[in-house]
């Protein structure tokens, strides 16, 4: 059983109208694989504590971790992380956790990532790991967001574009000007057009709200993907 470690917030960056990324320096953090998560604990002055699980956006051996959090308006922890926390503030983390929803460079299959909203967090860790490792395996990301402003890590994703990494966006509410398609959902047809074909036997990682993950995973299986090669992670009710 790993113990709680003290973390100090070193940086925050607004990513979207409702979300931001937070960098935390953690004493004794052992590093983490791409796709793992951690538990984060906040303690109020009267001793009251709240704990939530968050996916980790960063990857590697360092002692800092980056999270990206979307504000859940009626939530207890996410509004604090998005609106209130400042560099210098302290909190506690436990982790890294999870050994299933992870990608390591030893995996040489083509990899398809599918993100809904802040479900991008563990997947950008994989994209970063792919770039850092010099892996030449093909990576492709399908990223569904409501509007262009709702993209997390937009600049970094653009800079990661390469011969072996490509991002496709799907906008569900409003698109950038001159976008070739009107707002749409990630349907089976969209997945068929914008992802690595089942014939190429990719590993697939899907992360997002439950309804999104259910629909995407079902469509992937209908399109011929082996259910064993589709890994999912969900959040929300």
């Amino acid at each position: 059983m790993t113990d709680w470690k003290v973390g100090t917030v070193t940086d925050t960056r607004t990513e979207t109208p409702t979300g931001r990324s937070i960098t935390i320096s953690v004493d004794g953090w052992p590093g983490n694989l791409a796709g793992q998560h951690l538990d984060l604990r906040l303690t109020a002055p009267d001793g009251y504590q709240a704990v939530r699980s968050y996916s980790i956006a960063s990857v590697g051996d360092g002692s800092t971790v980056e999270l990206a959090v979307d504000r859940f308006p009626t939530g207890e922890v996410s509004p604090y992380l998005v609106d209130d926390v400042l560099p210098g503030d302290q909190l506690e983390v436990k982790g890294p956790l999870g050994r299933w929803f992870v990608w390591t460079p030893e995996d040489t299959r083509p990899i398809q990532l599918v993100a809904g909203g802040s479900g991008i967090v563990p997947l950008i860790a994989m994209a970063r790991a792919h770039a850092m490792s010099g892996s030449t395996t093909a990576f492709r990301l399908l990223y569904s967001v409501r509007t262009p402003e709702d993209r997390f890590f937009a600049d970094e994703l653009a800079s990661l574009e390469s011969e072996t990494f490509h991002v496709d966006y799907v906008y569900t509410r409003s698109t950038p000007a001159d976008w070739p398609t009107p707002p749409r959902r990630v349907t089976r047809d969209v997945i068929e057009a914008l992802t690595i074909s089942a014939a190429d036997a990719p590993g697939v990682f899907v992360c997002g709200p439950t309804g999104f993950v259910e629909a995407v995973a079902r469509a992937l299986v209908e399109l011929g993907h082996d259910p064993q090669s589709v890994k999912t992670e969900r959040f929300g009710g």
């Binding site: 906040l42 001793g47 704990v51 207890e76």
Partner: peptide, 26 residues
Amino acid sequence: AVFSRGFGGRARESAPDLPPGQFLTE
């Protein structure tokens, strides 16, 4: 535990039926 500046905790969801480290969801 260290205290997190400015964190008040909103819900105070502690209930006798709630195991440690859990929060209630509907």
